[in-house]
Computed example of a mutant assay.
Amino acid sequence: MRTIASKMKAPFLSSFLNLTGGFFLKMVKPFREGDFIEVDGEIGSATLINWTSSELKTIDGESIKVENSRFLLGKLHNLSDKNIIRLELSLNVCYTENMADVKQTIYNFLKGHAGILKFPRPKIVVAKLHENYVELKVAPWCLLDHFLELDYKLETALNQNLMRKGFKMPSEEKVYSEIRETA
């Protein structure tokens, strides 16, 4: 009998927490539809707020369902209230490099840069694999007031930092010739 009772508690508890989370969202209103939020590592624009679950549209355009219990039990940050924006930087690194070292060097550079925010954490992803190099997308966050200055200077500074640290980057000539070949 204990097993049946314990198996019945889990779905009930989950539903209860989701409904409680929905009540919390409707009463406290920590964010509105359209706000850019982060909850337990999921970042996106709130598109739907229901009683048991909510929906976020991620930066990549993907819609994800978030149980409302996560708003109660997890960490919630309304990024729209904080006036921040994400930068999108592109780097090309040769295959011969140790990618873990490259990532760590990028994180260290961003951590030491005054205009870059520590939260939300920057993301580094592989955007495309080319014949001789990897195209990385680096996405740090900054205050909206610093966006234009950082957008203009940061990518070049990051490339120069990686080259100073001894990482091999494909020459621009190789990159542009590859683009012309595919076009």
Rank of each mutant, 00 (worst) to 15 (best):
I106P: 01
F147G: 01
H77M: 03
T105V: 02
P140E: 00
P122F: 07
R164V: 12
C94F: 13
M163S: 14
K103S: 12
K168F: 15
H146M: 03
E135G: 01
T105I: 02
D145Q: 13
D101H: 13
K165Q: 15
G112H: 11
P122I: 09
H130S: 09
R121I: 06
K103W: 03
E131R: 11
P120K: 08
D145C: 08
E131I: 09
K75E: 14
I116D: 03
E97Y: 03
G115F: 02
D151P: 01
D101R: 14
L110Y: 09
F71I: 03
D81E: 15
L162T: 11
F119T: 07
L117P: 00
K137W: 04
I85V: 09
K118I: 13
V102R: 15
I85C: 00
V125E: 11
R121N: 09
P170R: 08
L162I: 13
V126H: 00
F109I: 12
P140R: 00
R70M: 12
R86F: 01
C142M: 02
E97M: 05
E131M: 11
K137T: 06
L143T: 05
M163W: 12
E172D: 12
D151Y: 09
I106H: 00
N159C: 15
K123M: 14
C142E: 00
Q104E: 07
V134Q: 01
L89P: 06
I106S: 04
L150C: 10
L144M: 06
I85G: 01
V134T: 07
H130A: 09
N132V: 10
L136C: 14
Y133A: 01
K111E: 05
L73M: 11
P122M: 09
D81W: 11
N108V: 09
G74F: 12
T96S: 08
M99T: 14
G115K: 03
N132Q: 13
K118M: 12
K123N: 12
N78Y: 05
A139Y: 04
V102Q: 15
